[in-house]
Design a binder for these strands. Structure first.
Length: 606
DNA sequence: AGAAATATGAAGCCGTCC
DNA sequence: GGACGGCTTCATATTTCT
């Protein structure tokens, strides 16, 4: 597969040999969802329907399922003929663009209310009159319950915004009245702490119920380090390498294995078999979701993540197949995996191509072609000074073996590059930006310190890798998407979609760090985004009421994306590698909670 | 006070060898 | 199979500097 970096415009990329429009079984476009309640959504990988295969009788329902009115579809078919579904689609999109201008005006006024942190304005909007359906989703249950318990709180970080249950007995009583067992309630309180709100407690119980439903052996709300014991059990040990498989593999049907090579369902630069997978029914959207975290997490972590995220196999990919730096990550998503395409031009994939100025000083005995994972900290000046002295002490041109070994160990550990004779240095911020696929100076200025730039970048997506996975959205959502971006960081998902040419209609971004929010906001304005960016600080305070308010106003989410904190999973953490129950990494459960809420809300009949 | 600099291993994978 | 060694890892705590 020859991917020359000749094309500048991603619109022109065509990975298909046939030039026919391939229409995935797609979700109902968000903007038309409100007017088309019975649009059945399904995610069918490899189930692309070729335009030429559609008979006339199938054409109409096909486009109707995409959210277009039947009359318009019939008219468009009449104008373009049955054989050219691409022209039909274009005609339909033109019609819809004209029709939607009024709706957009209404949506924008409500979005302004959200941005102004004014819930009351939202509550008075007509969309709020929709009846709340009470199905069997426990999330809905507690949302309705909350309506009776507390007033709607404001969007900002208000100390009193979330009901806090003071007395333990009071909380237990509440939860018992909600239908939970005393055991569930007390475990949740122990786990969530004495100051936990009803939201947090019910979220935790809901998550635990989901996990137990999926796995009868799910431990009863594990203690601090539940998996360590399992590791000592021989049955958890891994078998010998079984050779390459493009899917994640299991050992004894228990522990997830990492693929070797780590290319997931395929990468643009490697020849790999045509991927195929069948998603569990519970994973099918809407919305599409995309979750990311470090691949090399403590044992058992990915099994738990998989169980919560509807039993979808994680896709493990190393970004070294996309750029000059390694980044081993796991992605759990329900996106189609056929007909992906990469951002062009393809980034340089060797150190010397990415950093050509280092080529002159690079000794032959440093055989690295790829950098290791870009992390949040850089090597110190003291270290590079020690290395320089060790190198200069060498009498010959070529340093002694033990010196080479010492230097190379430090180079690999700290991602040092050659910037002069015997001179090694850590990467500059803008070099990290480039390697990760961000625009130059993306994290520069606006009051951010150099230390924080490294930290924010080290915690980010590799844009090209994520864009490759998200590229399938481009044809499905030509009019753009509504996105819920959790743990947005410096906006890796937003940048990836923008580079792909997927219009961002409404982006709800949740990010704790103020400097990161400022970076995304700045990027949003500099790139002249036409849509709305709504940002929030605390993911734990994003509850069902708030989500429903937003979704009613923007028409639901097409994509829920996010990589939850890896602090307690990453191997670099020498102090608190506590696993998924760690202080920061347990926010994964909020990703699941919110995704599940969005699924529930979108599944409601309107 | 905030930014910058610095020191601080272990978990767990993989390949090799016997 | 298992012992062994090589290798990699979205970081934290503390001290020093400005």
């Amino acid at each position: 597969m020859d991917q020359n970096a000749s094309g500048e415009d991603s619109d022109n990329i065509d990975w298909d040999t046939e030039d026919e429009l391939e229409i995935q079984n797609s979700f109902v476009p968000s903007s038309s969802r409100l007017t088309n309640p019975d649009g059945e959504a399904s995610v069918g990988d490899g189930e692309a329907i070729s335009g030429t295969d559609l008979s006339h009788s199938k054409l109409i329902p096909h486009f109707v399922r995409m959210g277009f009115p039947e009359e318009l579809v019939a008219k468009a078919i009449e104008e373009n003929g049955e054989g050219n579904s691409e022209s039909i689609l274009e005609t339909l999109l033109t019609y819809s663009a004209l029709e939607n201008s009024d709706l957009q005006a209404i949506e924008n006024s409500d979005l302004q209310a959200i941005e102004n942190s004014d819930l009351h304005a939202l509550e008075n909007s007509p969309q709020q009159e929709q009846p709340v359906d009470s199905d069997h989703c426990s999330s809905d249950y507690y949302e309705n319950f909350m309506d009776d318990l507390s007033d709607s709180d404001s969007w900002c970080e208000d100390e009193e915004s979330t009901e806090s249950l003071s007395g333990k007995g009071k909380a237990l009583s509440f939860l018992k009245n909600m239908g939970y067992t005393m055991e569930e309630a007390s475990i949740a309180m122990e786990r969530c702490g004495p100051d936990a709100s009803v939201d947090e407690l019910t979220d935790f119980i809901c998550a635990a119920q989901m996990a137990r439903a999926a796995d009868p052996f799910f431990p009863e709300l594990p203690e601090q380090k539940p998996k360590r014991k399992l590791l000592e059990n021989g049955t958890w040990k891994r078998k010998k390498h079984r050779g390459y498989d493009n899917r994640t593999m299991f050992d004894d049907g228990e522990t997830l294995r990492l693929p070797n090579p780590m290319i997931g369902y395929g990468v643009p630069t490697e020849v790999c078999p045509t991927p195929h997978r069948i998603l569990p029914e519970a994973a099918m959207g809407p919305p599409y979701f995309y979750y990311e975290n470090v691949a090399l997490a403590p044992k058992g972590v990915w099994d738990t993540i998989k169980r919560f995220l509807y039993d979808v196999e994680p896709e493990f990919v190393d970004s070294k197949y996309f750029c000059a730096a390694a980044r081993k990550r796991g992605y759990v998503h329900n996106l189609p995996i056929n007909n992906r395409f990469p951002l062009l031009p393809l980034p340089p994939r060797t150190i010397k191509e990415a950093l050509p100025l280092t080529r002159r000083w690079w000794p032959a005995w440093d055989t690295r072609t790829k950098l290791n994972c870009l992390q949040t900290c850089i090597g110190s000046a003291k270290l590079t000074e020690r290395l320089r002295k060790a190198l200069e002490d060498s009498i010959d041109d070529e340093p002694a073996q033990h010196v080479q070994k010492y230097v190379m160990d430090e180079c690999r550990k700290w991602n040092l590059v050659w910037v002069g004779r015997n001179k090694l240095a850590p990467l500059e911020c803008d070099e990290v930006e480039m390697l990760l696929g961000f625009p130059r100076n993306h994290t520069r200025g606006g009051g951010i310190s150099r230390t924080d730039r490294y930290k924010s970048l080290g915690n980010s997506f590799q844009v090209d890798t994520v864009a490759y996975h998200l590229s399938v959205l481009k044809d499905m959502f030509p009019r753009g998407i509504n996105m819920l971006s959790l743990f947005s960081g410096i906006g890796g998902a937003e940048v990836a979609l923008h580079k792909l040419g997927v219009p961002l209609n409404n982006v709800v971004s949740v990010e704790k760090s103020e400097v990161n929010r400022n970076i995304v906001r700045g990027w949003w304005e500099q790139t002249n985004q036409k849509g709305k960016l709504i940002d929030f600080e605390d993911v734990t305070r994003l509850d069902g009421d708030r989500l429903e308010h937003i979704m009613n106003n923007i028409g639901g989410f097409d994509l829920v994306i996010g990589g939850s904190p890896c602090n307690n999973l990453a191997g670099s953490n020498r102090h608190h590698r506590d696993g998924l129950e760690g202080k920061e990494s347990s926010l994964f459960y909020d990703y699941f909670r919110i995704l599940d809420l969005v699924k529930c809300i979108m599944a409601k009949p309107l």
